[in-house]
Design a protein around this nucleic acid. Sequence first.
DNA 1: TACCAAATGTGATCGCTGTTCACATACAAT
DNA 2: ATTGTATGTGAACAGCGATCACATTTGGTA
Lengths: 203, 203
Amino acid sequence: MKNGKRAYHHGNLAESLLNAVDDIASQFGLEAVTLRACAKRVGVAPSSAFRHYADKRALLTAFAARALHQLSNTLANARSQAQANDSDAFVAVCMAYIEFALEKPAFFRAMWREETIYTNDEHYVAAAKQLTAHLKGGFAGTISDQDPSSLSPQELLAWSSVHGLANLFVEGPVANGQSLSQKLQVANDMVLAMRPLFAPQHS
Amino acid sequence: MKNGKRAYHHGNLAESLLNAVDDIASQFGLEAVTLRACAKRVGVAPSSAFRHYADKRALLTAFAARALHQLSNTLANARSQAQANDSDAFVAVCMAYIEFALEKPAFFRAMWREETIYTNDEHYVAAAKQLTAHLKGGFAGTISDQDPSSLSPQELLAWSSVHGLANLFVEGPVANGQSLSQKLQVANDMVLAMRPLFAPQHS
DNA sequence: TACCAAATGTGATCGCTGTTCACATACAAT
DNA sequence: ATTGTATGTGAACAGCGATCACATTTGGTA
């Protein structure tokens, strides 16, 4: 793309803008994500963004959907790897959820911002459904599950607790000055504390 | 204040601005909270706000601290009332946490916004410490606790799960279209699911 | 090949935002 | 009464999201 760079038409602006959001959010935080900054980073005029997204919120919605997919994939990989290793897949999925939030806090924040996202956007809804389906199915299939079409209280407890701890880490006062490995230790202890509530995986 | 309204000096602008944040956030959401809107609501020039708060973030920080105190008080009341009624205080405190988030979503959001708050502000830190201390002490003293100076894995599990469910309700896709009472039922089921993990209250 | 319609990018401009600063006014202590 | 300090004002600034008429490129069709 360096030599073949077109003077006028970018070619793939919609996705490039998403990448710009990604970069800026990772480096400077979500509040630093500005339409103008994204456009500048891509090398395009600010107004160009509106050819591909109705407004800033639509761009952030697309970014959130992308982040949700990443999280879904992360969880799926964690399960596969744990099952291949014969280790506790439930714990692995829980930890993967929390690790994702710690490693990509801006993504994690962006995913769950009702007020800066069009929560009815079809792609966003689809991404949220994909994640929910993962968790409905016995926490990614790591625990026994009678009804994969609904969230059982246990499944919801598992989701809520990892989601809540992730939030407390990222936004809140828990383990604030501590290192990543300390936080992971804290998380592991919490997950093990609830482990007895869940039947072993049915594989 | 109508007749005695002073032409120039407001008298208690700092707190009035906090009330304005409160009103606007409750009515129109946190994103609608604007310095200019707050000033207009109080009947004062926009620049006046800067005599009392260094910047917008400082104002939001003060508001967050206030909201944290409200939550602490809500939890304390729930415990007292449950203990007076001889009902399960642990469950009552858990439910009070979630109810607070459902009834005042803008407050709940404002409390935990690392990026729009000065998390090192002394009042904010004090408020967060107060809440944490509540929960460290055996979840407001509703469950047995060996070491009130640290969060045990169980205590953290309880906090994380109610915090996480509150977030999933307020920001996320869980029980989205459902009524308040349905959500409370879902919450209650989740809390009961983890109840067996906790020793009875020591009173 | 020549042409034209649709898609994509631009620059100027708008209203709103947070913030600053010189200035105006009120209060409190002497 | 005077004076110093606290508090409120109005005009200004740059940066933001957004709009719109216009410029350029692309891709299909004749």
